[in-house]
Design a protein around this nucleic acid. Structure first.
Lengths: 121, 121
DNA sequence: TCACATGGGTTACTATAGGAGAGTTTCAGC
DNA sequence: GCTGAAACTCTCCTATAGTAACCCATGTGA
């Protein structure tokens, strides 16, 4: 395996980190964890995502081979998205992040409160 | 523990996900993993980061109680940054992400190449 | 004493990302 | 021929990320 180095500006891992660190990507992958869903179902479950961002995020994931896009010729057209094997393997690290976020929420909110009081910048 | 739900737009976990999913945050925390460093050392190791973004990222991490900022009155001033306990606990999920990125780089780059050929959008 | 170097930032500006919302396509059924 | 629903797609506009240049306090050598 080549030695990837995210600390180098030109290393492609930078782009991959951008993709998987993206807010919407985390949420889309997490939502698809339960099985395939269609566009409108994703939009409904991920509160606050715009159609544009959902389309963009899905295209990015599709491009990276992390989700598949299946069009069913019906009326109206039906489009399903599903995680690939690689996509499912991403669930684990993302879940770790999600769990960390949940676990440390309280202390972080606390720290934010204190910070605004002190902060003798 | 309260039930946090990142899929709700108003849940504060959203903000936390934004912070820890941030490209620079991942790299700064990863760089600080080896022990405390001063501002200029961080800037040198994280290729491509600007002073402004480094300052901003560090302020954010400090605000969330993930790093400490220590000013030593010397000439010129010396400022050290170090991970807190909470900050160190973040290393693990971030490392998982980094590892995932390294492991799947090849197949992702491959998928990207194929995508531009097909893609009968 | 005065220009210069050094570390750790700000400031001012520009480029890109993202949001709101209207418009588009496709095709069965009325 | 018109309607309606799903899944986009486009336009406009604001907010955030990013870049480059400047600032400030202090010690040093000429």
């Amino acid at each position: 395996m080549v030695e990837w180095d995210p600390y180098d500006r030109n290393c492609p891992t930078r782009k991959v980190l951008d993709r998987i660190g993206d807010r919407w990507t985390v949420l889309v992958v997490g939502t698809l964890a339960g099985g395939p869903l269609r566009f409108s179902e994703l939009a409904a479950r991920i509160d606050g995502i715009s159609q544009k961002m959902l389309t963009q995020t899905l295209r990015g994931l599709e491009q990276d081979g992390l989700v598949t896009r299946t069009v069913t010729a019906a009326v109206p057209v039906r489009v399903d998205y599903e995680l690939t094997t690689a996509g499912r393997s991403l669930q684990e690290p993302l879940k770790a992040l999600e769990d960390w976020a949940k676990e440390h929420m309280a202390s972080i909110l606390d720290a934010r409160d204190r910070f605004s009081v002190e902060a003798p910048r």
